[in-house]
Amino acid sequence: MFARIRSIIAYLQGTRVWLFAHPASLGVVVGALLCGSLAGLPAGDEMFTYMWADPRFCDDCHVHDYANKAWARSVHGQLTTCHDCHRVPIRHYPKNLVLALFDRPQTPEDIPRPEVKMVICEQCHLKSGAEEPLTGPMPDNLRGLVVRVDDSPLHKLHLGAKGRTPSLYEGGKPETEHPAPAEAAGSPEEVAEGKIECLDCHGGLHLEVHRFTATSEACVACHEGIRPADESGRGLSCLDCHARGFLGGSTVAVAE
């Protein structure tokens, strides 16, 4: 093997000498190198766009076409990339390339549930995150029109709560039964006790991700105790009365 390597190196050195001895040939080779480089530029651009902005790149390994479709249907699908919300460190890619080659996920259950930090939602939906960069196609003037919930009474109440479990007065369950919304809805993963996060209500259930619209299911998961049980209240959804508390006070920044 070493002899083969040495012979290759000797050939390359001989080629270098030969090229310098034949300037016309050297010119042709350098020209071909430049032409190849120029021809590669659009291919490189397409490759980058596919890897960064196309959800099919992620789906190649993560096998979550249901998530791709839900995202594409949502308002986020038109304006963001996967990377805007899923901050994937670069060590993820070589590791997952090996997994994709030798232990490819077959079903969504084979994929660990991604963790989306609240700071990602804050980028657009709270004033504090306005300076954070986005990489999707959302133009700045449109970003300025995104609803911010800093002054929304019920958003403030939930995001500022010390814990995830409401009191009995607020419709929470006794201390022996304290499910988190995702767990109550059947997610197999346990949700750690901590502060309430955006995805507790806006992320959707297991296998129903990217359903950003909050529904009463998330409310009931924690506030079941104050769900109306009488005949006139039974048909109501929580948001029929409480939507105003979530949307009221929400602001839209005036685009400059």
């Binding site: 071909a32 021809a39 590669g40 490189g44």
Partner: peptide
Amino acid sequence: AFILGFLTTGP
């Protein structure tokens, strides 16, 4: 050389 140039600037 053409292929090398293409692969360098492309992928």
